[in-house]
Write a protein that binds this DNA or RNA. Structure first.
Length: 430
RNA sequence: UCCGCGGUAGCUCAAUGGUAGAGCGUCCGGCUGUUAACCGGAGGGUUGUAGGUUCGAAUCCUACCCGCGGAGCCA
């Protein structure tokens, strides 16, 4: 019977088959120890010269790292085996002898590993990160689905910029001129929210900025909920509840992976409501006291964000930013027109902004004015303006950067390990 | 775009201006409980490129190429 290694403990005493690859091997001459991985885990199988045919023993001797094999044997508990369970091998079928494998069981530099990303994904650490990533995505979807949200994905090819500021990737589009790769699903999300009330989209987004930091990817995945009639405060409450749920779910379901990553889970267990909330003005006050004054109206840089978030043990909302720091669609505060109803969520431990969002302008005239102020073409935004002509309501939404969230939860240094094939300023391969 | 660091064996790294080395991987040999196994042996090099200084350059100088880290901007 074919089993997955993750289920092996339930098959002690049984004869099973495992389809996988050779992760590593050790030998004492007449006894071989084959570490087999099958994607679900790694299991040691033992092969003693006296117990198997000479052919099988010889085959095992010649196996190279990552050779693909189908093995059969008896599942046994043994304290000497990594994982506590091992397989006494009775039959070995070689599917392919692998060519000399570039990623050896010793150290490698990050660039070398990135060049072999397609193979690096087979390693333990990458398995842990990818499983946490999958869990984060699943937890987000389960949370929103449980609240009656409808997933409605938005287009990747778009006719215009969402926020005129950032650089966009361009591509020719038949006879219609230039298309742009989306930098946010938000505008379409607003249309979907006006149709379905509570919606979210989840997909890749693209930023052509020449950013070279550990927090940046040219292509990253964003989860964007958008809700009709939702205010700024309600948005912060929703985002907070979601983050608590997501972190809790990862702690519960991905314990082994967090352990493999040597993540300090005490810090994750601290992620509970309520999250601290600072207005932009209060944030400036704190920065001034910490000896890092910022002139009013300037956006907060990486250093400032780290300094603020390091003062708390859980994610921090910074709200009511100056209007000029934010996108054209941000709703101004009724009492202070120079600030908008926006809020960013800064992750602890210096991982930076993981959520950006706020309340959107619902007044047609004001939105038209903003488009003009930002020198944006009004023709391509007519459909967007329609949302303010036909039953406009206050509404809010936000975008959660999946990779930054995963980097934070995993406690890893660089965002590039949180996506299977990262797209960076100087990397389009593999 | 700006600032900083780097480029030596397949990989990770050493090498006062004086014969380019080690560990791992590979190949050969040894070992019946290995835990990144271990032990012995072999093979492996246009020291990023082009000039220059010098009796002699991986090392010093100049230019260039490539890469990395950080900043700005953003999720």
């Amino acid at each position: 019977m074919h089993i997955r290694i993750e289920d092996a403990a339930a098959h002690v005493g049984e004869e099973v088959e495992i389809q996988g690859w050779l992760y590593n091997k050790r030998s004492s001459g007449s006894i071989h120890f084959l570490q087999i991985r099958d994607g679900s885990g790694i299991m040691q199988s033992v092969l003693a010269k006296q117990d198997v045919s000479q052919d099988a023993f010889g085959l095992a001797e010649n196996l190279t790292q990552e050779s693909s094999v189908i093995i059969r044997g008896l599942v046994r508990e043994d304290k000497r085996a990594p994982g506590g369970v091992e397989l006494s091998l009775t039959d070995l079928k070689v599917v392919q002898i692998a060519a000399p494998y570039p990623i050896t069981p010793k150290e490698h530099g990050v660039e070398f590993l990135m060049d072999h990303r397609h193979l690096w994904l087979r390693s333990r650490r990458q398995h842990a990160v990818m499983r946490v990533r999958a869990e984060v995505i699943r937890a987000c979807a389960e949370f929103l689905d449980g609240k009656g949200f409808v997933r409605m994905d938005t287009p990747i090819l778009t006719p215009a910029a969402v926020e005129g500021t950032t650089t966009l990737f361009e591509t020719p589009y038949f006879d219609l001129g230039t298309a742009y790769l989306t930098q946010s699903g938000q505008l379409y999300n607003e249309a979907n929210a006006m149709a379905f009330g509570r919606v979210y989209c989840f997909g890749p987004t693209f930023r052509a900025e020449k950013s070279k930091t550990r927090r940046h990817l040219s292509e990253f995945w964003m989860l964007e909920p958008e809700v009709a009639y939702m205010t700024l405060d309600e948005y912060m409450a929703l985002a907070e509840e979601m983050m608590v749920a997501v972190v809790g779910r990862v702690l519960q379901r991905r314990t082994n992976e967090l352990a493999a990553l040597e993540r300090d889970t005490a810090k994750l267990k601290d992620i509970q409501s309520p999250f601290p909330r600072l207005s932009y003005d209060e944030a400036l006050e704190r920065l001034k006291k910490s000896g890092k004054p910022v002139p009013w109206g300037d956006d907060l840089g990486a250093d400032e964000e780290t300094m603020l978030s390091s003062q708390f043990d859980r994610p921090l909302f910074v709200h009511h930013y100056p209007a000029k720091c934010k996108a054209f669609y941000m709703q101004p505060d009724q009492e202070r027109h120079d600030v908008v109803l926006s809020a960013d969520l800064l992750a602890p431990e210096g991982y930076g902004e993981i959520i950006g969002g706020g309340q959107r302008i619902d007044d047609l005239a004001l939105l038209e004015q903003r488009l003009r102020e930002h020198n944006l073409p009004t023709d391509v935004y007519q459909w967007y303006l329609d949302l303010r002509r036909y039953g406009s309501v206050p509404h809010s939404g936000f975008g959660l950067g999946i990779e930054r969230t995963v980097a934070w939860i995993c406690g890893i240094e660089h965002i590039r390990e949180t996506i299977p094939f990262p797209r960076l300023l100087n990397r389009l391969y593999p």
